[in-house]
């Protein structure tokens, strides 16, 4: 498969008796923006956690650009070029805004330090719309600004693969427009992204392709328009016999 950056094959993770991710397989091509969607509890976040190394799969393989990353600890995966944001935003409260961004670029896929880190942080803050805010206390940021900050931190390592876990959740309509535009810009830079999202408008307008999960399994994988009109997908969302 030429042009494939990430390949997940038969990844499986169970918690006690509950199989959160049940033999899931999919590919992500270089430069692609893949949407990972599905009803609550379908295993999307667990899937992201498997990719980022937060948890290990019980079986299956995850390969990033030819290197097997399944089973590696999170810091190794990060150094190979996977960066992420968290479902519940996680900023570092006692660090300044600038340091929050540098944190992403010092230990990861690329490593900058000193003046370079300073320049990178300022450029990224500008990029996500926090220009001129480098010195403000992190605790005083609004919710969307915290999300922007987390995004800047993830971008600071110049990741090969960016994982966004419901990055748009909780934003009001006008913030949502800004947020969608921001992701589109990042994607237009050529960045490969997987986004877990519930906001359907964003999925429709942003994604090249979507993978739909339900009860730990993939139930659809393909072009956005086709997948979203698939009866199986609609049933999973609206509650068919097993929802």
């Amino acid at each position: 498969m030429s042009g494939s950056l990430l390949s997940v094959s038969a990844a499986r993770r169970a918690f006690g008796g509950l199989v959160a991710v049940n033999d899931v397989s999919f590919e992500v091509k270089d430069g692609e923006l893949l949407g990972l969607i599905g009803p609550n509890g379908s295993g999307k976040t667990t899937m992201l956690n498997l990719i980022s190394g937060a948890i290990r799969p019980n079986s299956g393989m995850i390969v990033l650009g030819g290197e097997t990353i399944s089973g590696l600890p999170a810091h190794r995966v990060a150094r190979l070029g996977v960066a992420r944001t968290f479902q519940l935003v996680r900023v570092l409260p006692t660090l300044s805004v600038e340091e929050n961004v540098t944190a992403g670029g010092v230990f990861g896929h690329i490593r900058v330090w000193g003046e370079d880190a300073h320049k990178l942080a300022h450029a990224l803050l500008e990029r996500v719309g926090l220009g001129g805010r480098a010195g403000t206390p992190t605790g005083s940021l609004t919710y969307i600004d915290q999300k922007r900050l987390e995004l800047a931190r993830a971008l600071a390592s110049n990741p090969r693969l960016l994982l966004l876990d419901e990055w748009l959740a909780g934003l009001n309509p006008s913030e949502l427009r800004i947020g969608i535009q921001l992701i589109r810009d990042i994607r237009n830079d050529g960045r490969t992204i997987i986004m877990v999202e519930h906001v359907m408008d964003a999925i429709r307008s942003l994604c090249d392709r979507v993978v739909v999960m339900s009860s730990g399994k993939t139930i659809a994988d393909g072009d956005v328009g086709a997948v979203l009109s698939d009866p199986a997908v609609i049933r999973a969302y609206l509650g068919g016999e097993n929802a």
């Binding site: 999170a74 990060a78 968290f86 570092l92 006692t94 340091e99 230990f107």
Partner: peptide, 24 residues
């Protein structure tokens, strides 16, 4: 140093620390 910076990140949030590439 980077070690000191890493420790401050760990003190804030160990999960984030791991995901930015720190061997905590």
């Amino acid at each position: 140093s980077r070690l000191g910076f890493a420790m401050r990140i760990i003190g804030n949030d160990e999960t984030v620390a791991r995901h930015v590439g720190i061997d905590t």
